[in-house]
Each structure stands twice: as structure tokens, then as C-alpha cells.
């Protein structure tokens, strides 16, 4: 059983290495060479999906730990429910704040998982499309980095707020890249700046809502998560 586990871990490492070192550059080069019409939107879609695979694989090694799976599922469901609840207010979404707080208390890998799952689950309500992988990646990476910075973020509220603002802005900027690639087929800096400016009010609302939700959630959810971890030994 143990040997089997080790073997599976090795396979995962090899797959991740192949994806990062060979497949992603190959997709970019082939995409740019083969398709002369500059189909950057679809190429970046492929790259985004590929870059989520290593995370999916690290997730798989937890098959035995049902507690973590259930915890992850309910956090993703809560943030998706929050997104649905606040859907009437454009830009005012608790998802990023929720992902950051979860990552602060559960670590980078769980942070990525909660972020990516929130995107998938809530898009079953908002509609799946080519944007789903981008949202998965954007929220996932925000959670991953928050997990890496968990100690300083827990210690200082100011840092947490700054990270919330950066996270909210980063999400908008990543999604704007997608909008531009999608509408134009290639990356056009002029169009990017235009779409960034036109989305500015939403970006600001988004950053502000992040601060609000972070300040409210970090204490409450932090307490609950710490308690749950102690009670059930996750």
C-alpha cells in the first residue's frame, strides 16, 4: 500500500513536470506557429487548463482524508452561495475574501482548491463557458499565494487588507486579459487599457467589497476553522 502510494506520488510528479516543462511551452509555440490567425484566446485557454492539472493531481493524493475533502467542498459551496446571494450587486462578491481567509487557515494547496472549486461550482449557476478555467485559475492562484503568506497575513490586519485589494484588482486584471483576447483574437494593449478603464468602477467596488468581507470574515471564519480543525483533527 505504502509502496503503491509512493509510486503514485512519483507518477504525479512526472506528469506535473511534463506539463510545466514540455506541454505548456509546446502549446504556446505550436499555437503561435500553426495557427496564423492569432488564436491567442484559445491557446491561453489550453495553457490555463493545463496549468490547473498539477493542482488537481496534488488534490488527488488526499483520497483517504475525507475530512479535508468535505471541508473543501463546504467552503467552496459557501463561497459559491455567497456569490449567488450577492449576484444582484455587480462587483460586490465575497468569493475572493472567502478564498483568502480559507487559504490563510488551511494552507496554499487548499487555498487553490477552494478558489478553483468556487469558480466551477458557482458557474453551474451562472453558466459554464470558456471563462471558467480563467476564473478557476485566477481565484486559485489568489488562494495559493494567500496560503503561502498565511503567517504574515494572520499577524497583521493591514497586510491582509492590502492583499485583499491586490487580490481583487488582480482578479479583474486577469479577467480583462481574457476579455481582450476573446474579443479581438490577439492581445491588443490599446483595447486592454480601454477595457481596464471601462471596468474600473467594478474593480474599485470589487476591491472595496473585498476589504469589507475580509474584515468581517477573517475573525469569524478564522475562529470557526481553528475550532473545527482542533475538534476533528483535520
Amino acid at each position: 500500500m505504502n509502496e503503491n502510494e509512493n509510486k503514485r506520488a512519483d507518477v504525479r510528479k512526472i506528469i506535473s513536470a511534463v506539463i510545466c516543462c514540455i506541454l505548456v511551452p509546446a502549446v504556446i509555440v505550436c499555437g503561435a506557429e500553426l495557427f496564423k490567425d492569432k488564436q491567442y484566446a484559445w491557446i491561453s485557454l489550453c495553457v490555463t487548463i493545463l496549468s490547473c492539472i498539477p493542482f488537481a493531481l496534488t488534490f488527488e493524493k488526499r483520497t483517504a482524508k475525507t475530512g479535508e475533502l468535505a471541508l473543501m467542498a463546504s467552503l467552496a459551496a459557501l463561497s459559491a452561495a455567497g456569490r449567488i446571494l450577492f449576484a444582484p450587486l455587480p462587483g460586490f462578491k465575497p468569493v475572493t475574501a472567502f478564498v483568502i481567509v480559507s487559504a490563510m487557515y488551511l494552507g496554499p494547496e487548499s487555498g487553490f482548491a477552494v478558489g478553483a472549486l468556487s469558480a466551477v461550482v458557482s458557474n453551474f449557476y451562472f453558466g459554464q463557458g470558456p471563462w471558467t478555467p480563467f476564473q478557476m485559475f485566477a481565484w486559485g492562484i489568489i488562494g495559493f499565494i494567500a496560503g503561502l503568506l498565511s503567517e504574515p497575513l494572520k499577524r497583521s490586519k493591514v497586510l491582509m487588507i492590502i492583499y485583499g485589494i491586490i487580490g481583487g484588482a488582480a482578479f479583474s486584471l486577469i479577467m480583462d486579459i481574457w476579455v481582450v483576447l476573446w474579443a479581438d483574437g490577439e492581445f491588443n494593449p490599446g483595447l486592454y487599457i480601454t477595457s481596464m478603464l471601462s471596468a474600473l468602477p467594478f474593480t474599485i467596488i470589487y476591491a472595496v467589497s473585498n476589504i469589507v468581507f475580509l474584515l468581517i470574515l477573517s475573525v469569524t471564519i478564522g475562529k470557526i476553522l481553528t475550532r473545527i480543525k482542533k475538534k476533528y483533527g483535520v
Binding site: 488537481a56 493531481l57 488534490f59 488527488e60 488526499r62 483520497t63 475533502l69 468535505a70 473543501m72 467542498a73 463546504s74 467552496a76 459551496a77 459557501l78 459559491a80 452561495a81 449567488i84 482548491a113 472549486l117 466551477v120 461550482v121 453551474f124 449557476y125
Partner: peptide
Amino acid sequence: SDKLLYIMGRAVPALSLTVSMALRFVPMFK
């Protein structure tokens, strides 16, 4: 979602289990 989870379940069982749990949690939470 049941069809997607059926397909994903073979390749990434833990992940698809988590997604299916989360999908079931959303209406329950509401």
C-alpha cells in the same frame, strides 16, 4: 453535473467527489 462528474470520476475521483458534495451543499445552505 451528474454526467460531468461521471466522466471526471474515473480520472480524478477525489476532485469529482468534492465537486459533487459542493454542488449538493449549495441548495442545502440556501
